[in-house]
Design a protein around this nucleic acid. Structure first.
Lengths: 211, 211
DNA sequence: CGCCGGTTCTACCTTTTGATGGAGGCGTCC
DNA sequence: GGACGCCTCCATCAAAAGGTAGAACCGGCG
């Protein structure tokens, strides 16, 4: 533990959160924050320059690229840094894309400083840390695969929750309206409902989509 | 400005955010953080002890009392500190109760450090600072009162958001289905939408109904 | 290789929802 | 008293949405 320090990049659009992460992590002698960025694009660019071991990545940025896309871009480069997602939300709509994009860990912003530091060290070693609530839902998903919604189904349902019609949905996703209905029909049967509004209500209650 | 410093209390359930606020504000020579608390109850208790000029108050706490309730409790005591709300969300459902509770200002967490410090000084002087997006929505609300939904319309829309059909809604409220449709038609025209899911999305975004 | 889950698509039919254009009762405020 | 807003109800027609019953493609996996 007395070797070279772990070099960190902070990617978050909130200055206060960046300052907080820096304050919390720089009290640890083996961690050093070498850069901060306020957008996902900057995170990808800075990570490509090298000299970073772990990126602490937010998922929601005000505009432009989101954190999951940035994570995918960063982890796609061999020899690049690990990405530890640190966000406020813990719904499937957030966690699944991030994990798929290659995130090494997934923490929530209410994490204690010591858990945060521990997760950074774990990520630097290439191993995974998950927030308890995230781990819970992943376990349930593996235990009861019948109930779980697929990525596509979550994507469709999220747009339904935004108020889009089947027709608008089809245009947005480059599908036929019939395909949209197929997806929704399967969503309804999995959630035990029979209308789009009931599906949105049920999925919101289960934390499958973000409110 | 070279007199006694402004004494601050930080109330937020996220350790990282507290550390960030402290880091950002303590670089200012005229501001001093004298206490941090992680729950709304503690904030009320600490404020009652005195020695605080401005409370930086989050609205969302994990459990128990929320920030608006705490704000009301703190401002109810004469001679108590000012409350500056610093939160992530800016929907009517958040801002209106907070302002009604007597908050002196309302900032978002993506505020720049200099704006934050300026808002603290303004609050200490008893004057108001509002985040631009919050100010915008308050102005619009005053300019166009016709947009406001009636109690009955909100009641109907809330049940729609729970996934009920028009028929189920009519039974629940002891109305005819036609009356339900009338209410919804008026809701749609007020919100500028043309479907129940879009109405729920719009109303949720505006903070008109609870998610 | 065959199987399976996920995704895409089709066709027909029923039910629900929304648009339109009213009308009457009731309480409040001027 | 009259105007106004809110709530209730009506009927008709058109447009979405949902139910049913398939089928084909593809990628991963045993």
């Amino acid at each position: 533990m007395t070797g070279t320090p772990i070099r960190l990049l902070l990617a978050d659009d909130h200055p206060v959160v960046r300052a907080g992460l820096r304050a919390v992590l720089e009290t640890e002698p083996d961690l050093v924050v070498v850069a901060e960025v306020a957008t996902a694009q900057e995170a990808v660019a800075r990570a490509a320059e090298g000299g970073i071991d772990v990126v602490l990545m937010d998922l929601q940025f005000g505009a432009g690229m989101n954190g999951a896309e940035a994570t995918a871009a960063i982890t796609a480069r061999p020899g690049g840094p690990r990405v530890l997602v640190v966000t406020t939300y813990d719904t499937d709509a957030d966690t699944l894309p991030a994990i798929e994009a290659g995130a090494t860990g997934y923490l929530l912003k209410d994490a204690l400083p010591e858990d945060l530091a521990a997760a950074v060290r774990t990520a630097a070693a290439g191993r995974t840390t998950l927030a308890p609530s995230v781990a819970d839902r992943l376990m349930n998903r593996l235990r009861t695969p019948g109930t779980a919604l697929t990525r596509r189904e979550i994507e469709v349902l999220t747009l339904v929750a935004d108020g889009l019609s089947n027709q608008a949905l089809a245009r947005r996703l480059h599908l036929t309206e019939g395909t949209v209905k197929s997806h929704l029909a399967r969503v309804y049967s999995k959630l035990g409902v029979d209308s789009r509004t009931a599906a949105v209500a049920a999925a919101t209650g289960l934390g499958l989509i973000r409110r």
